[in-house]
Computed example of a mutant assay.
Amino acid sequence: MPIKTKLVSIIERAQVLKASDIHFILKDDQMLVQFRTGVLMIPHETISISLYHQLLAYIKFQAALTLTHPRQPQSGLLRLETTETTHFARVSILPTSHYQSLVLRLINHQQKKTLDEIPYFIQNADVLKDMAAMQAGLILISGPTGSGKTTTTYAFIDYLKQHLGKSIVTIEDPVEYQQPDIVQMQVNESVGMTYDVGIKEILRHDPDVIIIGEIRDVQTAHQALRAAFTGHLVISTVHAKNVVGTIHRLRDLGLSVQELEQAIVGIVNQRLIQKEDERKAVFEICFGEQLDDLFSNLHQGHLDSLPYKTIDEELYQCHHVN
Score class of each variant (00 low, 15 high):
residue 170 T to F: 07
residue 170 T to V: 03
residue 171 I to F: 10
residue 172 E to I: 00
residue 173 D to Y: 01
residue 174 P to W: 05
residue 177 Y to G: 00
residue 178 Q to S: 11
residue 179 Q to G: 00
residue 181 D to Y: 15
residue 181 D to I: 12
residue 181 D to V: 12
residue 185 M to F: 14
residue 190 S to I: 01
residue 190 S to W: 00
residue 190 S to C: 00
residue 191 V to G: 01
residue 193 M to F: 14
residue 193 M to Q: 15
residue 193 M to N: 14
residue 196 D to M: 01
residue 196 D to N: 10
residue 196 D to C: 02
residue 197 V to T: 13
residue 197 V to H: 13
residue 200 K to D: 10
residue 200 K to A: 07
residue 202 I to Y: 15
residue 204 R to I: 14
residue 204 R to P: 15
residue 206 D to W: 14
residue 207 P to G: 13
residue 208 D to G: 13
residue 211 I to M: 15
residue 211 I to K: 06
residue 212 I to G: 00
residue 212 I to W: 08
residue 213 G to Y: 01
residue 214 E to W: 03
residue 214 E to V: 05
residue 217 D to H: 04
residue 218 V to M: 08
residue 218 V to Q: 07
residue 219 Q to D: 09
residue 221 A to W: 12
residue 222 H to A: 07
residue 224 A to D: 08
residue 226 R to A: 10
residue 227 A to Q: 12
residue 228 A to C: 03
residue 233 L to P: 13
residue 234 V to Y: 07
residue 240 A to K: 00
residue 242 N to H: 13
residue 243 V to E: 02
residue 245 G to S: 13
residue 245 G to A: 14
residue 249 R to V: 08
residue 249 R to D: 08
residue 251 R to G: 12
residue 252 D to C: 05
residue 253 L to K: 08
residue 253 L to S: 05
residue 254 G to P: 03
residue 254 G to Q: 05
residue 255 L to D: 02
residue 259 E to C: 02
residue 259 E to P: 01
residue 259 E to Q: 12
residue 260 L to C: 10
residue 261 E to S: 12
residue 261 E to L: 10
residue 263 A to F: 10
residue 263 A to R: 06
residue 266 G to L: 03
residue 267 I to G: 11
residue 268 V to Q: 11
residue 268 V to W: 07
residue 271 R to T: 10
residue 272 L to P: 02
residue 274 Q to T: 12
residue 274 Q to G: 07
residue 275 K to M: 04
residue 276 E to A: 10
residue 277 D to G: 09
residue 278 E to N: 08
residue 279 R to G: 04
residue 280 K to T: 00
residue 281 A to N: 05
residue 281 A to D: 00
residue 282 V to P: 01
residue 282 V to N: 06
residue 287 F to R: 11
residue 287 F to N: 11
residue 288 G to W: 06
residue 288 G to V: 07
residue 288 G to N: 11
residue 290 Q to W: 00
residue 290 Q to P: 01
residue 293 D to A: 14
residue 295 F to N: 03
residue 297 N to P: 01
residue 299 H to R: 09
residue 299 H to V: 06
residue 300 Q to L: 04
residue 300 Q to T: 01
residue 302 H to R: 01
residue 303 L to S: 05
residue 303 L to E: 11
residue 304 D to S: 07
residue 306 L to I: 05
residue 306 L to K: 02
residue 308 Y to R: 02
residue 309 K to I: 03
residue 309 K to C: 08
residue 310 T to R: 05
residue 311 I to M: 05
residue 311 I to A: 01
residue 314 E to W: 06
residue 314 E to S: 01
residue 314 E to R: 09
residue 315 L to Q: 07
residue 317 Q to I: 03
residue 317 Q to W: 11
